[in-house]
Design a protein around this nucleic acid. Structure first.
Length: 470
RNA sequence: GGCGCCGUCGCCAAGUGGUAAGGCAGAGGUCUGCAAAACCUCCAUCCCCGGUUCAAAUCCGGGCGGCGCCUCCA
């Protein structure tokens, strides 16, 4: 497929370097708080990429996504809460996994935590390699990466020294660094902070080292095929990951870099430090379904900022409902016989869909294909030109689309647990059917209103009554 | 100060040289006990100015407006 590579700033052909296995790493969450819907935009887009590579392009995937469970904030917040670090971060890992499941994210093959001993040892091992290669210096017991020893530093972010020095904001410099852009690999032990000693002195890892070390430990020889994350990670995080991995191994770190743009709220990015955040549970509490949020995420290209508003979530709910209504309508098609025209139209849509997805993950374009097919097939059903075998072919196509996009499966799962038990709904529908047959419309309307008050809509048609959530 | 992105119908959003996908909302219609729902149909010349070209929303230049990175951050 074609994929934009931040390294080259161009769309390039993507395929694994060897064989059929895509080795990808994506930066996960720093687990000092619950992830917000901006974070999950990134994770959802990466999930869509993963699924496209897997189901559409036919590659095998080995994806590693980390949890940063030690840094200034996790330490500070756990202390504030009076809970041991590990126990504190456990909570937000659990919350992350819950929200991921709610949004239908596929589970990466590995989700390492920075503070697991094997990972810490991988980090200190890498730091020792960097020391041996002359890329480091020590100061007050901390180990720093000296960027002047790496000529290619800055290639990813295209930032030069001049630009940074002219900037209004210069590093506050909590630690004594020789150059403002040097960064810490290992922070010397501080009183009251968790400390490990695996060969580079007592202390804890700097933020960037974990990703370089865990990526290579869990994915094997560099270069890996793909590294992904939010745009804000381009600098300094990913730039520093490259410096560490390449300084240690002397080889390129990752062939492709993929970055997802921000989700904005009120004209500015949603971020914990700005305090303008909503979480997945917040969205659910407002009565929206996760499937709608997933749809909203995928309705905008991943390299464009997404302006989040409740109105756009409403629109996503409605759009997804149209899709679900169409799929439900397919189930009412019972006429025998298949039609070549339908098969041809469906095949065309499948091709177009795959083309859009393979073109730098153009999910918005792919959605357009789905709706065009919906309209064409609705018209064909109206004209009596769709038989049950055709319906099966159409269903199959949507199953294929959804293996990549995922919101239909998600909505079906949500529908399986409506606010009113399914047995109750079906019993009331049956009572209403009898009332209607006896032309007792007052009773029929009462039953309909009763269900609607509980969030269930009824839809009458010649083939019976269907229900759905409001 | 440096680097980068964006500005398409009331709203959301594809399209990046060949004459504007799709969704929401709206209008009209079909169906229906009614209402709803569903379905169909209709609904834009692309922020402004200038240039290149047979041809530009798409390329170039200049404006205006918005966002981001350069600092923890998805």
């Amino acid at each position: 497929m074609r994929l934009y590579n931040t390294l080259s700033r161009r769309v390039e052909d993507f395929r694994p370097s060897a064989g059929n296995l895509v080795r990808m790493y994506s930066c996960g969450l720093t687990v000092y708080a619950r992830g917000h819907i901006g974070n999950f935009r990134t994770f959802t887009c990466i999930d869509a990429l993963r699924r496209t590579l897997r189901y559409q392009e036919g590659f095998e995937i080995r994806q590693v996504m980390n949890f940063t469970d030690v840094d200034d904030r996790t330490i500070a917040e756990s202390q504030k809460a009076g809970v041991p670090l590990r126990e504190y971060t456990d909570r937000f890992i659990a919350a992350f996994l819950e929200d991921s499941a709610t949004l239908g994210l596929e589970r990466p093959e590995a989700m390492p935590r920075a503070t697991d001993e094997a990972n810490l040892r991988a980090m200190t091992g890498m730091i020792q390699q960097l020391e041996a290669n002359g890329h480091t210096y020590r100061s007050d017991g901390s180990v720093y990466f000296k960027i002047s020893t790496l000529p290619q530093y800055g290639r990813l972010s295209h930032l030069d020294v001049a630009g940074i020095k002219a900037g209004a904001r210069v590093d506050a410099d909590k630690y004594s660094k020789e150059d403002a852009r040097d960064f810490v690999l290992w922070k010397a032990a501080q009183p009251g902070e968790p400390t490990w000693d695996f060969g580079v002195g007592p202390g804890r890892p700097g933020w960037h080292i974990e990703c370089s070390a865990m990526a290579l430990r869990l994915l094997g020889e560099p270069p890996i095929d793909l590294h992904a994350g939010g745009v804000d990670l381009v600098f300094p995080h990913h730039e520093n990951e490259i410096a560490q991995a390449e300084g240690a191994t002397g080889r390129p770190f990752s062939r492709f870099w993929m970055h997802v743009e921000f989700l904005n709220l009120d004209q500015e990015k949603m971020s914990k430090s700005l305090g303008n955040i909503f979480t997945v549970p917040d969205v659910l509490q407002r009565g929206y379904r996760a499937s709608a949020l997933r749809y909203l995420y995928l309705s905008v290209h991943y390299r464009k900022q997404l302006k989040f508003t409740w109105e756009s979530l409403d629109q996503a709910e409605e759009a997804l409902t149209r899709l679900m209504d169409f799929l439900a309508r397919l189930d009412t098609v019972t006429a025998p016989g298949g039609h070549a025209a339908v098969a041809a139209r469906v095949a065309e849509a499948r091709r177009a869909f795959a083309d859009w997805m393979a073109d730098d993950l153009n999910t918005a374009g792919a959605l357009g294909v789905m709706f065009e097919l919906v309209r064409a097939m609705n018209a064909a059903i109206d004209a009596g030109e769709v038989g049950a075998p055709d319906a099966a072919v159409i269903r199959e196509a949507f199953d294929e689309f959804d293996r990549v996009l995922g919101f239909i499966t998600l909505r079906r799962a949500e529908e399986a647990t409506p606010p009113v038990p399914v047995e109750t709904i079906e019993r009331l529908i049956e009572e209403r059917r009898i009332a209607r047959r006896q032309r007792n419309f007052a009773e029929a309307d009462r039953l309909r209103a009763e269900l609607e008050a509980q969030g269930i809509l009824l839809e009458d048609s010649p083939t019976g009554t269907r229900w759905k959530r409001k």
